[in-house]
C-alpha cells in the first residue's frame, strides 16, 4: 500500500540577484508502507530539498505530496526527520529530555524511556547535554527523539555524513534493525553508494539535470559489504551516478 506519494513537484531557490535557481522539475515519487527508499545523487542535485518538501518543511511550487492520501502542507508527527547534523537536539535539554520533548519526564513512564534509550544504545548518556556527546551519540539521540514520536516514516537527511567509518557502519546497522523491528518506512538521503546499497529496498538516483531514475536493490538481506555481489552493484551504481553528474 502506498504511504507517501508525490507528483509534479518543482522547486526553485532565489539567488541574491533575484533570479530563480531551480532544483526540482516535475518530480514524482511513491513510497510503499514498510519500504526503504534511498535517494542518491551528487551534491546540489536537490536531495535535501526534496526531503524537506516530502516532510512538509518546504512547499513545492507545483504538484502535491500525499501521505496516506492526505495532502502534506506542514510537518506531521507520523513522519519524523533526522537531519544531517543533529540540529533538532536542543542544547538546553539532556539526552533523555530531548528524546521525550516536549513532554516532561514525569509524564512518560520510566520503562518506556528506558526501553527507547536502550534500543538506540544511549542509556548511559541519558543525563548528558548534547555538547558532551560525540557525533555518533548525537545521531543516536536524534534517532531516539524521532522514534519517541512513534513515526511510520523516517526521513533521514545524510545523517551519518560527518561520522567516522566504523560509527557510520554501526549506525547503518542500527537503522536497518530499527526499520525492520519497528515496521518503519524509510526515506534516506545520502551520497554514499555503499550506504545506499546497504539500506535500500529501492534506490532513487537524482541527477543535476533534474533527471531521476529508480532502481530496485537486488541484494538480499543480510547484506555483506565486502561480498562480490555488493561490490559489483556498487560499481554499477557508481557508473549510473557518473552519468547523472552532468551540470545544469
Amino acid at each position: 500500500m502506498v504511504l507517501l506519494e508525490a507528483t509534479g513537484l518543482s522547486f526553485s531557490y532565489t539567488r541574491e540577484d533575484g533570479t530563480a535557481y531551480p532544483v526540482l522539475k516535475d518530480f514524482s515519487l511513491s513510497l510503499d508502507e514498510g519500504e526503504s527508499l534511498v535517494i542518491l545523487g551528487p551534491s546540489g542535485c536537490g536531495k535535501s530539498t526534496l526531503l524537506k518538501i516530502l516532510g512538509g518543511f518546504l512547499r513545492s511550487r507545483t504538484g502535491e505530496v500525499l501521505y496516506r492520501g492526505r495532502r502534506v502542507e506542514k510537518p506531521f508527527r507520523r513522519g519524523q526527520m533526522v537531519f544531517q547534523d543533529p540540529q533538532q537536539l536542543l542544547p538546553w535539554l539532556t539526552v533523555e529530555e530531548n528524546m521525550i520533548f516536549p513532554e516532561r519526564r514525569g509524564r512518560v513512564p520510566k520503562a518506556a524511556r528506558d526501553s527507547l534509550l536502550e534500543k538506540v544504545g544511549i542509556e548511559e548518556f541519558r543525563e548528558s547535554y548534547t555538547h558532551q556527546l560525540s557525533g555518533g551519540m548525537k545521531q543516536r539521540a536524534a534517532l531516539a527523539r524521532a522514534l519517541f514520536a512513534l513515526p511510520e516514516l523516517l526521513f533521514m537527511d545524510e545523517p551519518f555524513v560527518s561520522l567516522d567509518a566504523p560509527s557510520r557502519q554501526e549506525l547503518q546497522e542500527m537503522v536497518l534493525k530499527l526499520w525492520k523491528d519497528e515496521g518503519l518506512s524509510l526515506l534516506f538521503v545520502t551520497h554514499d553508494v555503499g550506504e545506499a546499497l546497504f539500506l535500500a529496498d529501492r534506490i532513487l538516483i537524482m541527477g543535476r539535470d533534474y533527471s531521476f531514475t529508480y532502481m530496485a536493490n537486488p541484494l538480499p538481506y543480510p547484506r555483506e559489504r565486502w561480498s562480490e555481489s555488493f561490490l559489483r552493484e556498487e560499481i554499477r551504481i557508481h557508473s549510473l551516478l557518473e552519468a547523472s553528474r552532468s551540470s545544469r
Partner: peptide, 29 residues
C-alpha cells in the same frame, strides 16, 4: 535560533505559543 529547532518542533505538532516556553525562551536565556 536554529530554524531546525522550529522545524522539528512543528513536526511534533507544536505551534508558536507553545514554542515560546519550549524553544524561544530557553534558547534566549
Amino acid at each position: 535560533i536554529d530554524s531546525h529547532y522550529f522545524d522539528s518542533f512543528r513536526s511534533l505538532g507544536g505551534g508558536f505559543l507553545s514554542s515560546l516556553g519550549h524553544l524561544i525562551l530557553p534558547a534566549l536565556l
